[in-house]
């Protein structure tokens, strides 16, 4: 039981850092540009397909990862310049429609390019296998590496946001957009950088999970909504909130699925507990979101409206 708990907790953390990578870009784009981007989830999928392609071409996960990054930058920049840039000054409704259109376009393009059958990315040699944790418990090295990589990005982002000039602008932009333009900053450039950074982080998340999940066309869907929940819980514009929110959401989602039914069994008869657990588990994060919002409508670290 204890072992299962530790294992699932680690899985939760691993999902959490991935969610953070996705949500970090999303929350910055929301907070700074006040733009809702439904296409963020498909970027995650694109990242996975890119690494699958490059890894297959070069025969190496590492080369794949390395080549994926500039490709992701290109994807982000193209999206920003061709579509997103024209949406900043538009209503949220227009943004919803246009980025919904982008979701359809990108989904189909991926299907046309890579087909509908799932791809797989081989585990890099260096990170395959498991390490002993405690007692008989083993944990895959790759998952630990994903956690480490995610944490490294989180630390990097923290440093950028809190200790650099561009980070200062980002924070200022998230709280007061007019002030940043008043500072004489090239707002277009700032927006392009933020959007592209967000896109790259989402692609990176997709690339990192590629070896442990099958790469398929639906993979962006559920993740997008979870990332929304993360952003809402953490507070729009707050990277810190996104980090905490991502961990909370991921851990609740992972542990709830496993331990919810077990807990229920202590109060209900097994059949009913099983049924109810299965129904409740996937709703858990949304119920959590509702509770947090009820107490704090602007999220944990959001500025109140």
């Amino acid at each position: 039981m204890m072992n299962l708990f530790v294992l699932q907790l680690l899985n939760g953390v691993q999902l959490g850092v991935l969610l953070f990578l996705i949500a970090a870009g999303l929350t910055l784009v929301f907070g700074i540009m006040d733009v809702i981007n439904l296409a963020h989830g498909v970027l995650y999928m694109v990242g996975a397909y890119l690494i699958a392609t490059f890894a297959a071409l070069t025969g190496s996960f590492w080369w794949g990862l390395l080549l994926m990054l500039p490709a992701a930058v290109a994807v982000g920049l193209i999206l920003e310049v061709v579509v997103m840039r024209r949406l900043y000054a538009r209503s949220h409704l227009d943004q919803v429609l246009a980025t919904f259109g982008l979701v359809m376009i990108i989904n189909e393009l991926v299907e046309i390019t890579w087909g509908t059958s799932p791809l797989s990315v081989p585990m890099p040699e260096l990170l395959s296998g498991s390490v002993p944790l405690m007692g008989p418990l083993q944990y895959p090295v790759y998952r630990i590496a994903v956690i480490a990589a995610g944490l490294a990005v989180a630390v990097g982002l923290y440093v950028v946001v809190n200790h650099t000039r561009i980070g200062m602008l980002l924070r200022a932009g998230a709280t007061n957009r007019t002030m940043v333009s008043a500072l004489g900053v090239d707002i277009n450039k700032l927006f392009a950088i933020v959007f592209t950074l967000g896109a790259v982080l989402a692609c990176l998340a997709g690339a990192l999970v590629a070896p442990i999940l099958s790469v398929d066309t639906g993979m962006g869907e559920s993740v997008l909504i979870l990332a929304f929940v993360v952003v809402v819980i953490g507070g729009i514009g707050s990277v810190k909130g996104a980090f905490l929110g991502a961990l909370i959401v991921a851990i609740v989602d992972t542990l709830g699925g496993v331990f919810g039914p077990i807990l229920l069994r202590s109060v209900l008869d097994p059949a009913a507990a099983g049924q109810m657990g299965r129904v409740l588990a996937p709703m858990l994060v949304y119920i959590l979101m509702a509770l947090i919002l009820f107490a704090k409508p602007a999220g944990l670290f959001g500025r109140s409206a």
Binding site: V35, H92, M283, L293, A305
Partner: peptide, 22 residues
């Protein structure tokens, strides 16, 4: 409805998804 703008959009989306998963 305690929220506005992008919040409202995302929260209604999330609740819709909750029903979907149910």
């Amino acid at each position: 409805l305690r929220t506005r703008g992008v919040y409202f959009i995302m929260i209604t989306l999330a609740f819709g998804q909750m029903a979907f998963f149910f």
